[in-house]
Nucleic acid binder design. Structure first.
Lengths: 138, 138
DNA sequence: GCGGATGGTTATTGACAATAACAATATCAT
DNA sequence: ATGATATTGTTATTGTCAATAACCATCCGC
């Protein structure tokens, strides 16, 4: 019955993304991170001048929604904030944050290897370019 | 700065799906439908024996969450329910529902053509098979 | 120095999925 | 045929996540 929807690119994209997010969420939960939180850790690595607004712009998260996200990372002791000037503040990783970032990196890298392994070789290398074209046109 | 995440399949999948859903939502809103609602209309077309539970199973929506969804479609006059036995009821399209389904079909088909058109020809045909492999393995 | 843009924040809203519980009914095994 | 089990539809509640509006303080360009 689902055959009507199965080959529809939009539907396939939605279902694939849902399945992927669910699995990745489960794996990241083992180190107490949500997907968006892990993205932030990966993003601010080796930087000491990235503001919350800038992270939001890159990850496409409203800066209002960055507040609770960074708040959680801060109470978990993974990030700290350093004033850049009277208005802006840099988000930077603590020692614990660096450690957690490395774990998150390992988990996501393994996960994405697993993902790609499920795709037939002849399709595999086309996925990221195709997705990139969809995302950055919008 | 985003380069660290850009080529990650999981991240690309998430962003592409978000962009796609946003755009499709906007287009379907012109005929007062949400994405999940449109999926239901497409699914129950030309059937008179599909139950709410079955729709949920196919679309991966908990049957508890089908209740408000079908409720909205019913008050909009797009579906009606016909008892199958004392326990189950078939979800079927009204005349207005058939009409709306056709509009939804046109919108989504056009939309997906637009999507595919953004993808370089050499990648295009690999997208759905690759996504299918990700989704149905989970 | 002033006006407009930007950063950080609060509060609120809505879409959507997940969970638990329940009553009624159907199905299956014996 | 009956009794245990599974399924259907439903209510209610929770949590995650994104979107919007408003606010104040501060920065920047002219």
């Amino acid at each position: 019955m689902t055959d009507i929807l199965r080959q529809r690119p939009g539907y396939a994209l939605r279902r694939a993304a849902n399945a992927m997010m669910g699995e990745l969420s489960r794996r990241l939960a083992t180190i107490d991170l949500r997907i968006a939180e892990a993205s932030v850790l990966l993003l601010v690595d080796r930087r000491d001048d990235v503001t919350a607004s800038e992270i939001g712009r890159v990850l496409d998260i409203q800066r209002a929604n960055m507040v609770p996200l960074l708040g959680r990372l801060e109470v978990a002791g993974l990030i700290e904030r350093k004033p850049i000037d009277g208005k802006s503040q840099a988000v930077l990783l603590t020692a614990l944050g660096h450690q957690r970032r490395a774990e998150a990196d390992a988990i996501t890298t393994t996960f994405e290897d697993d993902l790609l392994a499920r795709i037939a070789p002849e399709h595999r290398d086309h996925l990221v370019p195709a997705l990139g074209a969809l995302w950055r046109a919008d």
